[in-house]
């Protein structure tokens, strides 16, 4: 029986779905449920991770410190994880405090071709004796050989595993096979996959990742996450049980946790909306969806036009400001 490590970013990626407004009570309730279900890693924070509360991406009502302290209190068995993007989070202002609060697992993320910006952060985490992973975001934008080069840099910097994110929900299963097997072959550390469901393939792609050699998977309760959401955790766990994989997660308890999450933290359950399909086709960061919706309404333009234009410009996570510029350009061209 093969072991698979599950990381659950319901309280991090899900924050995108509520414009980063998850409150401390919600964090406490879900942490308790996930902890009871033996989820190995529970990731908590602003959607773009540590230090990312901003006008650009969205302001949280609570601080990173409050979120992490609350989560830590309710996680007795599960490890507390965070997402951290250099360019948003600095070591001094953000990372040092998070480790002091008791974060166990830190995922240092960069756009898929920019791994060298993670060097100092990864080094610092290892110095502090915490678990460090490297994350390549928007990984559909780089070919497999380039992804491997970037992942190897992170491995050299001290990453103990590499997660590639399908941040736009743009992958087909054949893409997953190609990229995951290239990484598995070329790295000495475990490889993981983080799915988004824009094209309805989150579970299928996650399983394809396993079959290609991945050892780490991300999933969230009801798929609660940016845009069309992530791989639905309770479904993923059930499928893994049926396939004979071992996750350490109790089925009944994770089903209960997802019911609790639906009731307590989701204003609406993620579905694949029309604009999410377009977003996936255009290869646009899922975290943009709330902003695109708001700006398209303000400027009275079709969100689908915005997505395709953003895709054409190859914008990356963190470039939310460009949405306004694109909207104004579409408006100008209409006149």
């Amino acid at each position: 029986m093969k072991n698979i490590l599950i990381s659950d970013p319901t309280l991090r990626d899900g924050n995108h779905a509520v414009s980063h407004k998850l409150n401390l009570k919600q964090i406490a309730i879900y942490c308790e449920a996930a902890n009871y279900a033996n989820v190995p890693i529970v990731e908590v924070g602003h959607g773009n991770g540590l230090g990312a509360s901003s006008l650009q991406v969205g302001l949280s009502d609570v601080t990173d410190r409050q979120m992490l302290e609350t989560a830590k209190k309710h996680l007795t068995k599960s490890k507390l994880g965070i997402h951290c993007i250099p360019g948003f989070a600095t070591i001094k202002r953000d990372l040092a405090n998070a480790i002091d609060i008791g974060v166990d697992v830190i995922r240092v993320a960069s756009h898929c071709t920019e791994a060298d910006i993670t060097q100092r952060h990864l080094g610092y985490i290892r110095e502090r004796g915490k678990e460090a992973y490297g994350v390549l975001m928007m990984s559909h934008m780089a070919p497999a050989n380039l992804l491997l080069e970037e992942a190897q840099k992170m491995e050299n910097y001290g990453a103990e595993g590499i997660i590639i994110m399908d941040s736009a929900g743009a992958y087909l299963p054949s893409d997953v096979t190609e990229k995951i097997s290239t990484l598995v072959e070329g790295l000495d550390i475990p490889v993981g996959f983080h799915a988004h469901n824009n094209l309805g393939l989150a579970i299928a792609n996650s399983i394809t990742a396993l079959e290609s050699g991945a050892k780490i998977l991300d999933g969230t309760a009801r798929g609660f996450g940016a845009g069309a959401g992530n791989a639905q955790l309770e479904v993923l766990v059930a499928v893994l049980i049926k396939m004979g994989y071992k996750t350490g997660i109790d089925l009944y308890n994770i089903l209960d946790a997802s019911d609790i999450a639906e009731k307590e933290i989701m204003p609406s359950i993620p579905v694949i909306k029309s604009e999410s399909i377009v977003s996936g086709l255009a290869g646009v960061f899922s975290g943009f969806s709330k902003h695109v919706k708001r700006i398209s309404e303000e400027f009275k333009i079709d969100q689908r036009d915005i997505y395709f234009e953003l895709g054409k410009r190859r914008v990356v996570a963190g470039q939310e400001d460009i949405i306004i510029e694109v909207a104004m350009e579409i408006l100008k061209n209409k006149k």
Partner: peptide, 8 residues
């Protein structure tokens, strides 16, 4: 905030 964009 600083973003590096690799678009060509």
């Amino acid at each position: 905030i600083l973003n590096l964009n690799p678009a060509e």
